[in-house]
């Protein structure tokens, strides 16, 4: 991999810092008229998710990180690993709990997700923004109670628990925003 100089830093670029793969979020050029130029850079550590600011002298460079996002199909989990497949090459990858993290509760078999590979191994898994999942457990539905604004917890097929309107019942399929965990509506057949 090559390296990037501070003046090439762009948001979204993946670099190695202190031995960890990081994504650049923001790069601000700071310079007194008659003095040293700096770049104040905001980064996200792709392993831990931590965001922080590091200042460089302008002109310093960082090694590019071998990090790529791939669209893959989620196949199944064996309890220890989650298995994904590249749709074109049929190549399979297994991700551990650390890489899958909170995304696990949104993974439905055959859905297409983004798998971030670092040196060829899954580093993170990002579910689609919207998923459609079946309610497997919730209190009985209240017929005709569509006007009232109340909600109740419902457990979905993947194990996620979301707040849904009172009139929904088990077996129905709902649409959920995975970024916020919010119920968006009933899935259309």
């Amino acid at each position: 991999m090559g390296s990037y100089s501070t003046n090439e830093f762009r948001s979204g670029m993946k670099v190695m810092l202190d031995g960890e793969p990081c994504a650049i979020l923001d790069n601000e050029f700071v310079k007194p008229g008659k003095g040293q130029a700096f770049n104040r850079v905001k980064l996200r550590n792709l392993t831990t998710g931590r965001v922080w600011e590091r200042t460089f002298k302008s002109g310093e460079s960082l090694e590019a990180a071998d990090v790529m996002d791939h669209d893959m199909e989620y196949l199944y989990t064996d309890g220890e690993f989650w298995h994904f497949m590249e749709p074109n090459t049929f190549e399979q990858h297994q991700a551990d709990a650390k890489a899958v993290g909170d995304s696990a509760k949104w993974l439905k078999e055959q859905d297409t997700v983004v798998v971030t590979l670092y040196n060829g191994s899954p580093l993170a898994v990002t579910p689609p923004n919207h998923v459609e999942l079946e309610i497997v457990q919730t209190d009985p539905g209240l017929k005709g109670d569509t006007a009232q604004g109340g909600t109740k917890p419902a457990t979905l097929s993947t194990g996620a628990v979301v707040k849904v309107p009172l009139f929904l019942s088990e077996g129905e399929v709902v649409r959920v925003d995975t970024r916020t965990g919010e119920y968006l509506g009933r899935a259309k057949d």
Binding site: V30, K31, P32, G35, Q36, F38, T55
Partner: peptide, 11 residues
């Protein structure tokens, strides 16, 4: 010294 002074001044 001036690099550090500039850094403290701007940041």
């Amino acid at each position: 010294r001036d690099v550090w002074l500039d850094l403290l001044m701007t940041h």
